[in-house]
Simulated scan of single mutants.
Amino acid sequence: MAITFDDGPVEITLEILKVLAKYKCRAGFFCIGKNIAAQPKIFKEIIKAGHLVGNHTYTHTRKMGALSVFRMIWEIQECNKIAEETAGIKMNLFRPPFGIVSPKTQKALQETGLQSVGWSIRSFDAVLSSEEIILNRIKKRIKPGAVILLHDNNAKTVKILEQLLVFLEQNNYEVVRPDKLLKINAYS
Rank of each mutant, 00 (worst) to 15 (best):
118 G>D: 05
32 I>D: 01
19 V>F: 10
17 L>D: 03
129 S>M: 03
137 R>V: 00
122 R>N: 07
46 I>D: 00
6 D>W: 08
103 P>S: 10
96 P>G: 10
40 P>D: 04
14 L>V: 13
47 I>L: 15
129 S>H: 06
115 Q>Y: 12
94 F>P: 00
40 P>T: 05
90 K>Y: 11
1 M>I: 11
63 K>R: 13
161 L>K: 12
44 K>E: 14
175 V>G: 12
147 V>F: 08
158 V>L: 14
53 V>Q: 09
102 S>Q: 10
115 Q>V: 10
4 T>F: 15
148 I>E: 05
15 E>W: 13
108 A>H: 02
37 A>Q: 05
41 K>Y: 06
138 I>L: 03
66 A>K: 14
153 N>E: 08
176 V>Y: 07
137 R>I: 00
39 Q>M: 05
103 P>Q: 09
113 G>W: 14
75 E>N: 00
141 R>S: 10
141 R>G: 02
99 G>V: 03
97 P>D: 09
147 V>I: 14
116 S>P: 05
156 K>D: 03
113 G>P: 12
57 T>L: 00
67 L>N: 01
10 V>R: 08
95 R>W: 03
178 P>R: 10
80 N>E: 13
77 Q>W: 01
30 F>L: 08
111 E>L: 15
102 S>F: 04
5 F>M: 12
182 L>I: 06
176 V>E: 12
118 G>A: 09
33 G>Y: 05
132 E>G: 00
139 K>I: 15
171 N>D: 06
149 L>N: 11
155 A>W: 10
22 K>E: 12
58 Y>H: 05
115 Q>S: 14
79 C>Q: 07
136 N>W: 03
155 A>D: 13
35 N>T: 03
109 L>A: 04
15 E>V: 11
2 A>V: 08
39 Q>W: 06
162 E>P: 08
95 R>K: 08
113 G>T: 12
38 A>K: 13
167 F>I: 04
166 V>L: 03
44 K>H: 12
127 V>T: 14
83 A>M: 15
49 A>T: 08
33 G>P: 02
123 S>C: 09
42 I>A: 07
165 L>Q: 06
159 K>G: 05
75 E>K: 02
122 R>I: 01
175 V>K: 15
17 L>S: 10
52 L>I: 14
161 L>I: 13
27 A>N: 04
7 D>N: 12
137 R>T: 09
121 I>R: 02
149 L>C: 07
150 L>A: 02
89 I>M: 15
140 K>P: 03
3 I>Y: 04
9 P>A: 09
56 H>M: 07
103 P>C: 09
135 L>S: 02
38 A>V: 02
121 I>E: 03
109 L>T: 05
173 Y>M: 12
118 G>R: 05
135 L>W: 07
73 I>M: 02
56 H>F: 09
129 S>P: 00
74 W>N: 04
123 S>V: 11
16 I>S: 08
178 P>C: 13
115 Q>H: 14
107 K>G: 03
16 I>A: 09
45 E>G: 01
103 P>K: 12
173 Y>L: 13
125 D>L: 07
120 S>R: 06
64 M>E: 05
